[in-house]
Design a protein around this nucleic acid. Sequence first.
DNA 1: CATGAATGAGGCTTCATTCAT
DNA 2: TATGAATGAAGCCTCATTCAT
Lengths: 220, 220, 220, 220
Amino acid sequence: MGLTVLQSALFADKTKHLGKSARSRARLIDAALAVFAREGLEAASVSEITREADMANGTFYLHFKDKGELTLVVALSVAAEIAREMDDAMADIDDAIERVSFGTRQFIHIASERLNWGWAFCRAFWVLPELRMGAGQYLRRDLERGVAQGVFSIPVDDFLVEMVGSLVNVALFARMNGTAGPEAGSKAAEMQLRLLGVDPELAKRVAWQPLGGALSGPTS
Amino acid sequence: MGLTVLQSALFADKTKHLGKSARSRARLIDAALAVFAREGLEAASVSEITREADMANGTFYLHFKDKGELTLVVALSVAAEIAREMDDAMADIDDAIERVSFGTRQFIHIASERLNWGWAFCRAFWVLPELRMGAGQYLRRDLERGVAQGVFSIPVDDFLVEMVGSLVNVALFARMNGTAGPEAGSKAAEMQLRLLGVDPELAKRVAWQPLGGALSGPTS
Amino acid sequence: MGLTVLQSALFADKTKHLGKSARSRARLIDAALAVFAREGLEAASVSEITREADMANGTFYLHFKDKGELTLVVALSVAAEIAREMDDAMADIDDAIERVSFGTRQFIHIASERLNWGWAFCRAFWVLPELRMGAGQYLRRDLERGVAQGVFSIPVDDFLVEMVGSLVNVALFARMNGTAGPEAGSKAAEMQLRLLGVDPELAKRVAWQPLGGALSGPTS
Amino acid sequence: MGLTVLQSALFADKTKHLGKSARSRARLIDAALAVFAREGLEAASVSEITREADMANGTFYLHFKDKGELTLVVALSVAAEIAREMDDAMADIDDAIERVSFGTRQFIHIASERLNWGWAFCRAFWVLPELRMGAGQYLRRDLERGVAQGVFSIPVDDFLVEMVGSLVNVALFARMNGTAGPEAGSKAAEMQLRLLGVDPELAKRVAWQPLGGALSGPTS
DNA sequence: CATGAATGAGGCTTCATTCAT
DNA sequence: TATGAATGAAGCCTCATTCAT
């Protein structure tokens, strides 16, 4: 299960039925993802993105007001897509402990497997508050669920969400780096659960249990 | 105790007795800190830094080979200075739990109190591996101490160090943001200790106990 | 027949039928020629060239990777154009003595008559080995022809080619200087022939004979 | 007899008896020679020259008004020194043919043997009219002598001097390049003599005869 | 005389953005 | 819609020269 599952045109593929304009826009988003992943948000230039998308330089501004707008759109598109996939996969998990564990592992899995997403996400995370907010929404609900279920022993507030959420991003970063292997997700999940007050034994058990068919699921 | 304690020329102040060149260099470091804090590492331009330092553009290159060299020097200078101060303050703490707690709180305290240091550190953290490494060294020793003392129940490896370390940076970030108030340090420390396996009650007690005279120490 | 036959846009003129981009590129080449002629290769700055071409600074890099690339392109364009014209004019000259004489005279004539070419060539000659090589190819063939015809009494090698070739450049230089008048070509040709072993009387006769209609040829 | 006879401080050595100022000046000239030889006239920067001379940057302007002044002084110093040595060596040669041959061979020999002189001379030759003039003076006298002796069959004028003189420089250039070996001097001399009207057989004999003790003379 | 820090103009290059086609 | 040439501000860096010590 390597990192190099080739998979281009993630967003463009979904717009075959839409107008030409929407398709161009999607192609730009895909290209931007690739370039962001390669070079980072600031280092990516509009011309490189359009070159990657096989378009003329000026076409960019028909679809986006700004480089900044593109950045946002790309990040949120990725986040939304990941969220959608995860919602699907997690729809019938009730236990907050399992949800947090599965969510973290699954997220890291998806992001690192999907070409360009992992890096793009890492690169954008600390720069785009919108991204952190968006991701935080999901996490927060599970944390609150855990408190309600009496399994997390720590009050949920923005700060907690940021801290627990950042652990996911840091683990993803290590994964992309090569600093950490495929076990990064489990390790991160275990740490989160310990932090949240789950018994260490249980945390380890849940975080390292096989992910089930979900893994091979909607990876595209 | 707000964030706006005016305090310019942190490094320049220490070089009054040195040659003119060293003083100019220090002025550049201070100016860079200010600009990094305002705009981030990449967005800071040499001309803006020299303008901030009231120098001619070319003077910069008398003191640094490169913008990259400056970046490194600034980050490591700050890190070294913080490390020095913290070493002093922590010299006689033996208990690993206390060390981790005190270290985290004190670090956030110092960095957020010193004009520009907090932001500069946050901005540099994810961009400069050297910085993460350097900070990690210190943390790792305390984690290993905790394992040796039998108070931390999780094996120490690079990944753990990165994760626990990142919590400090994330908390500092929230502090600088205004997302978190002065209690950020205690909150972060408490979470770290929980993650490491310290009993939640103990973690809370240690993380929130008064910091002692250290706080009023060398904050400037 | 002075040196100041106004004649701008030598390359641009030939591209009226091509795309806008090619025309801009040609304008840059013409401008570069002018600036090279005025200031020399190294002293010419991109901004001065674009100013001469009435373009924005950045436009330059749409057409050339580099100042170096431009330099080469300009030198080789000129050389190629001169070579083309000379090939045309010399196609039906068989006698090596006449070829060398005519080539030298014609070259100096063309280069000194065409606005900027003379100086640009002189300025580039010692700096661009590619230019010396290219010019050397042509000369060498005529030298070898002369040996084959039994009229040149000196073995042809790289060194000889460089020496004989440099005489052309030196004469052109003197012509541009104003040190030498329009007779520079004949004088240079005569010296070359003497050097090559042609009888002095014959050398003088050939080198000074009227150039025929060629002179009034494609000087534009 | 390689090109790498180490020989630093050519001018500085002669000023031991002079004031400190004169010695510094001479050190700068030597340093400039080295840098010119390494990088060319325009590429040499004042700071590199002073660094080579182990002096402070500003000291330069105590000794020279300008970078341009230095350039001139360096070139003329070298020329004067070479001329002095050659005058010595040629004092008792009467025959113009021998003088031209010996002069050319000896000049190339000295310049290519003396560390830095060869390159510096080549690099300066086309840029400094003063240098060409100076060298031309000497050559002209021998050419006129040859005409007077009835051995050169071509009228002496500025143009001839430039052409014959340039052959020396071109040969030196090829020598420095590595394009030509130690025989460059003889080859060049032979060509000059042929050009001047000397019988090819005689030209060859004279140009290739052993140089005599002169060679081992003042080469350092 | 000498030092070496400082200056600031100017060179090369990139890039977000506009605009005529 | 799309193109791609053009723009010009801005970034990094070098270097001849000046000046306080």
